[in-house]
Design a protein around this nucleic acid. Structure first.
Lengths: 209, 209
DNA sequence: TCATAAGACGGACTGTAGTCCGCTAAAGTC
DNA sequence: GACTTTAGCGGACTACAGTCCGTCTTATGA
């Protein structure tokens, strides 16, 4: 119980570096990929709503507990699956060419974002619905919502400093809710009509003096 | 099997009058009221999220099947409970004094509606969340949404005939989603701030040339 | 290579939404 | 008041989300 274990003190040996958590264990990584792959396949084959998490766990060859520990809940799994596609859009916004990326006028950037988001949403409505509705208020808790919100708030602040940018950003995101989009499409609204309506409203809202 | 049963033919005796379904049976009415009363009480006592439909059925002294046959699902029950309060607002819109009722300028009426709706929403967020989120797309299927939508569409058409009134009405209703409102309140937005932000945006959107 | 502990695994378990169908009671008919 | 029709009743049943905890695997370092 003295220092004779050598120059490496207990502190040096045992304290993990803060902010750098252990890397993912090999089995954890293997199972994570298996689950994502199985979910992707089953969702595509049978429709998001018709696949239970038991079924995904079984198809992935893992226990159900594993799925839940890793993804939290149904919404979490959907978020993970959407992540890849959303990251593409995020990258374009942060460092792509204008008008989506930096360089264009703020209102143009907002409109470019809405167009791009609507394309993404339209392509993956079901998955978005799952990620937004599977648990209460899920939409507003997930990272990407906050990222879109922050992006819009900055642009709005720039375009219309007289507005409450924080609130207005939520306002602009509200019509992008997955279940509203689904409902509109089911009612016969086509994508161009939705895009055009939203573009018009946004222009009016953000361009006025 | 001849006409000897008298002047009353089989047709006359048996055909129900179309479009006038049998009145509600006494036991059905009794149970409907019991369930609503029990639900109202339990929701108030324990919070909407913490009450199962089994519990409501038990408290009402009816079987679970009865609750589901009558209300369809959790959302349906919440809708039924909200109905009374929403009808009050509906009445004011249809025949109350301006600016909520007829007579005021369309933009003023829209703003009055938004204010009144936000008050209602803020007072019953939990119930609204249940009615909107308990089943997929429930918000857009229920009667009152369609009523609000129709009301707004007419006013928007009047104020800005150049806009796509049908779509724009959905746009105006989007920020009234219960889970967004809850999330905003949880983030510290107070009701006046929300009202003012929405009022400003609406004015800008509908008043521009 | 072995000992050890952090952490992942997975399936049994719980609680709830929603379905089903044989049974019961209310309304209408004579 | 008995008989028939029809709607409503209700609880057993299914399926699914999400939890829990004893067991097993991996990474580490000596």
């Amino acid at each position: 119980m003295n220092d004779s274990t050598g120059p490496r003190s207990a502190l040096q040996r045992k304290l993990p570096v803060v902010g750098q958590p252990r890397p993912e264990r090999a089995d954890a990584r293997r199972n994570r990929l298996r689950v994502l792959e199985a979910a992707d396949r089953l969702f595509a084959e049978q429709g998001v709503k018709n696949v239970s998490l038991d079924a995904i766990a079984a198809a992935a060859g893992v226990g159900k507990g594993t799925v839940f520990r890793r993804f939290g809940d149904r919404a979490g799994l959907a978020v993970a699956l959407l992540d890849e596609r959303e990251q593409e859009l995020q990258a374009k916004i942060l460092s792509g060419p204008p008008p989506l990326g930096p360089g264009a006028a703020p209102v143009l950037r907002v409109k470019a974002f809405l167009d791009a988001y609507l394309d993404l949403l339209d392509r993956h409505v079901e998955l978005f619905m799952d990620s937004e509705n599977a648990s209460d208020g899920a939409r507003y808790r997930i990272g990407s919502y906050n990222l879109w919100h922050q992006h819009l708030a900055l642009l709005i602040e720039e375009a219309r400093p007289d507005l409450d940018a924080d609130y207005t950003a939520h306002l602009v995101l509200a019509p992008l809710a997955a279940d509203l989009h689904k409902s509109l499409r089911d009612q016969g609204f086509d994508l161009p009509r939705i895009k055009s309506g939203l573009r018009t409203a946004t222009t009016t809202l953000l361009s006025a003096v």
